[in-house]
Every structure is written in structure tokens, then in C-alpha cells.
């Protein structure tokens, strides 16, 4: 009798896990395996799939300039996006942690864009940045400067893609930093004050080191989100001008749905999967280390 109860108790967690496990297997594991399988075929809507081994991988890495282009675009986007998010989220987090009037309002205001749909954000910014009828050029003209083709010059378009994404997401990361800041004991600042420390010294010698785990979380999360970027860019610039802002997911979309090359798209998505997996593992390891501390 007691054995039966113990066995049931041991089985219970697995039973609770089972529904999630089934869904995860159906919608994540099986499609991932199927994706790898599809990546070994040349596909066409007018002919049966043809087994080509690793040819799709060879093609995207050695022949196709657009895959390399989308990877380098993504890398540069990620570097600037993550840097800007880390710096700004710390800055905003520190400011929002001060005892200032209307602190609640500012916290809400910075978080507000996070709740907006990426499509809405991209459409609104697309209108603001329109070179002929946009709000920004209207303002620029009013102060006597020449209107600029903000989204039609490669460098300007790259800048605005990062800027709009940072604007849309930095509020979320600032909240993580804010939580980190609030976990720093006030006694440390009090002790430093007794020792005659300045505000700047407090920031560099107390706040920043103790905020390191939060900054690391922000860096990794923003890096993963940067890798998954699609809708902001697709609607704002369409990957253009030319391919100046084409990211890997858009490359995959183009290969699968505009060129009917599902095999090639699968190969590219597997490469992205591996990169994301490595990033997720790094994040997991760091999380474990934090727990150990």
C-alpha cells in the first residue's frame, strides 16, 4: 500500500509534465528534425523533392552572397543593438531608480513601447521617416536643413533599424536593470558615503559591479531577441535599400516563399537554430553560475 502511494507520488511530476512535453515534442522537436531532413533536399513546387545531401549548406555558405550578407547584417545589427540597449537600459534604470517627481509616470512611459505591436511601431516610424511626407523631414525642413532619405540610404537605414528596435524594446530591459538596482543593499552606499565616496565613484565601484549579473542577462536576452529580428525590419525597410538591412529570417522567408527553395530555407534556419542554441546554453550556464553564487 505504502509502496503504491510512493510510486504514485514519484510519477505525479511526470504526469504534470506530460501535456507540456507532448506539445513541445509535437511543435518543437518534430518540426526541428523535419527541418533538418528537409534541408537535405532540393525542393520545387513543380517536381518531387530531390535528395542533395549537404548541398544546400554548401550553397548558402560558399555560393550565395545574400546568406553571408544577411549574416553580416545581423551581426552588425546585433552589436549596435545590444550595445545601445545595455547602455541605455542602465542609464534609464538608474534614472528611474532615483527619487524624482512623477517616477511612476516615467517608468510607465519607458515601458509603454514594449506593449505595442512591432507592426504598429514599424508603420508609425515608417511614416515619421518617410522621405517626402514624413514628420522628421518636416521638422528638419522647418529648421532650414535639407530633408534626408532616412530609409533609402544604406547607412541611414541601418541606423534607423537599430534606433527603432532599441526604442521599442529598451523599456523591457530597463525594468530588469531596475530590479537589479533595487536588490543592491542601501547599506553599501551608506558605508561609502561615510568614507567620502562621490556619486560617480558609487556608480563605478558599487552599482556597476553589483549590477553585472543583470547586465549579463540583458546582454544575452537582447542578443537572442536581436537574432530573431524580423517584423520591425521587414515592415520598416523591407530589408532594403537593396539588401542593406536584410536579416537572416528575411533571407529564410525569401528562400522559402519567394523562391520556392524550402530546402535552402531549412538549411539556413538550421544555422540560425544552432547559433540561438549556443546563445541559450551560454545564458543557461551563466544562470547556473549565478545560482551557485
Amino acid at each position: 500500500m505504502r509502496m503504491g502511494i510512493r510510486r504514485r507520488t514519484e510519477l505525479a511530476p511526470y504526469l504534470f509534465l506530460l501535456p507540456n512535453l507532448v506539445i513541445f515534442t509535437l511543435f518543437i522537436v518534430i518540426p526541428t528534425l523535419a527541418n533538418f531532413y528537409l534541408g537535405l533536399f532540393r525542393t520545387s513546387p513543380s517536381a518531387p523533392p530531390q535528395f542533395v545531401g549537404l548541398e544546400n549548406f554548401r550553397y548558402i555558405f560558399t555560393v550565395d552572397d545574400l546568406f553571408k550578407r544577411s549574416l553580416s547584417n545581423l551581426a552588425s545589427f546585433m552589436v549596435f543593438d545590444v550595445m545601445a540597449i545595455v547602455v541605455l537600459s542602465v542609464l534609464i534604470g538608474v534614472l528611474l531608480n532615483q527619487s524624482i517627481r512623477g517616477r511612476g509616470f516615467y517608468r510607465s512611459a519607458f515601458f509603454f513601447p514594449v506593449m505595442l505591436s512591432p507592426v504598429v511601431i514599424a508603420l508609425v516610424w515608417g511614416w515619421i521617416l518617410n522621405n517626402r511626407f514624413g514628420l522628421l523631414n518636416a521638422m528638419v525642413s522647418r529648421i532650414g536643413l535639407d530633408p534626408q532619405p532616412w530609409l533609402l540610404k544604406p547607412d541611414l537605414a541601418r541606423f534607423w533599424v537599430v534606433a527603432v528596435h532599441v526604442w521599442a524594446t529598451v523599456g523591457f530591459f530597463a525594468i530588469i536593470i531596475l530590479a537589479g538596482l533595487q536588490s543592491i543593499p542601501a547599506s553599501l552606499y551608506e558605508a561609502a558615503e561615510v568614507d567620502g565616496s562621490t556619486t560617480l565613484q558609487n556608480f563605478f565601484y558599487i552599482t556597476l559591479p553589483l549590477l553585472a549579473p543583470s547586465i549579463m542577462t540583458v546582454s544575452l536576452l537582447s542578443m537572442i531577441r536581436a537574432f530573431e529580428i524580423f517584423d520591425h525590419v521587414y515592415i520598416l525597410t523591407g530589408g532594403g535599400p537593396g539588401t542593406a538591412t536584410m536579416m537572416v529570417i528575411q533571407y529564410i522567408y525569401r528562400a522559402a516563399f519567394e523562391l520556392d527553395q524550402q530546402g535552402r530555407a531549412s538549411a539556413a534556419s538550421l544555422v540560425l537554430f544552432v547559433i540561438l542554441l549556443v546563445l541559450a546554453l551560454v545564458q543557461y550556464r551563466i544562470g547556473k553560475q549565478k545560482e551557485a553564487l
Binding site: 537593396g242 539588401t243 519567394e258
Partner: peptide
């Protein structure tokens, strides 16, 4: 032509690169 759609998209995208002065 069975391949018109995909080939037309390639033509469109590559000419866009030239139009945008990318290449």
C-alpha cells in the same frame, strides 16, 4: 514558365541592389 515567379523575384531583387547603389 514554371519558374517564372521565382526567377522574376530574383531579377527584381538583384536589380534593386543596383538601383540602391549597393553593387
Amino acid at each position: 514558365h514554371l519558374k517564372f515567379g521565382p526567377v522574376a523575384n530574383v531579377v527584381r531583387d538583384r536589380l534593386t541592389q543596383a538601383i540602391a547603389d549597393e553593387i
